[in-house]
């Protein structure tokens, strides 16, 4: 896909990018493959099959889907094709409520089928709650926000909220140095809740 290389400000590129990110955030298997390639650099289908433990046909078709979406590049110069990831970031602003999606959120979503705590969160509360939880997990993982405050403001049963924070702490540890847009992720420490409903 060539829209990734078009000039900034191009509406076609922006909307296509939006659709690509939305697609990744609907399919955890594609999300997992995308961040796997991002973390590992140039990888072959053999590596994907081996490390992600998925059937070869699935690896081929998923990798092709991601190339079509413009989030993976396929290098066909050599006999064995290799894939590399295009780092993506998407800022959404809905009537003033703003959030930036980066590969870290995509990784968290991609892990959900293998992580019962994240899976349950998305099933019960939706992807938005996962994004919100990530804003708390970032200061929590750094020791900049206490576990209890983060859990209370997340407004989930306490121990369950802690489990979600711990799951996302693992995601953050794996993605912090890999996600080039990590610092653009919202950090809940900076924004105390404005209402009194956190108590």
């Amino acid at each position: 896909m060539n829209y990734m290389s078009k000039a900034a400000g191009d509406p076609e590129r922006a909307v296509n990018g939006l659709m690509s990110v939305a697609h990744l955030l609907e399919n955890p298997r594609l999300a997992r493959l995308y961040t796997f390639v991002l973390r590992n650099g140039n990888v072959t289908i053999d590596t994907i099959v081996d490390k992600l433990d998925i059937p070869r046909t699935t690896a081929y078709s998923d990798a092709s889907s991601l190339v079509e979406l413009g989030v993976l590049d396929r290098d066909e110069d050599q006999k064995t094709h290799t894939y590399s990831a295009v780092p993506i970031t998407l800022s959404a602003n809905l009537d003033g409520d703003e959030y930036t999606v980066t590969p870290t959120l995509i990784e968290a979503f991609g892990r959900s089928p293998q992580d019962q705590d994240l899976d349950l969160l998305i099933e019960r509360h939706g992807l938005g709650k996962l994004a919100a939880a990530l804003t708390y997990a970032i200061p929590y993982a750094e020791g900049e926000m206490s576990e209890r405050i983060a859990a209370r403001e997340l407004d989930l049963q306490h121990a369950y909220a802690v489990a979600v924070l711990q799951a996302l702490r693992e995601v953050i540890h794996d993605m912090k140095t890999v996600d080039p847009y990590f610092n653009e992720l919202r950090n809940a420490r900076k924004q105390p809740p404005t209402t009194e409903d956190s108590a």
Binding site: G143, M145, R148, I149, R152, K190, P192, P193, S198, A199
Partner: peptide, 17 residues
């Protein structure tokens, strides 16, 4: 301590914390 380190007001830290 927790209020300071978490950037919250002390009244947002429960006694039980």
């Amino acid at each position: 301590f927790i209020a300071r380190s978490s950037n919250r007001n002390e009244d947002q830290i429960e006694k039980a914390d």
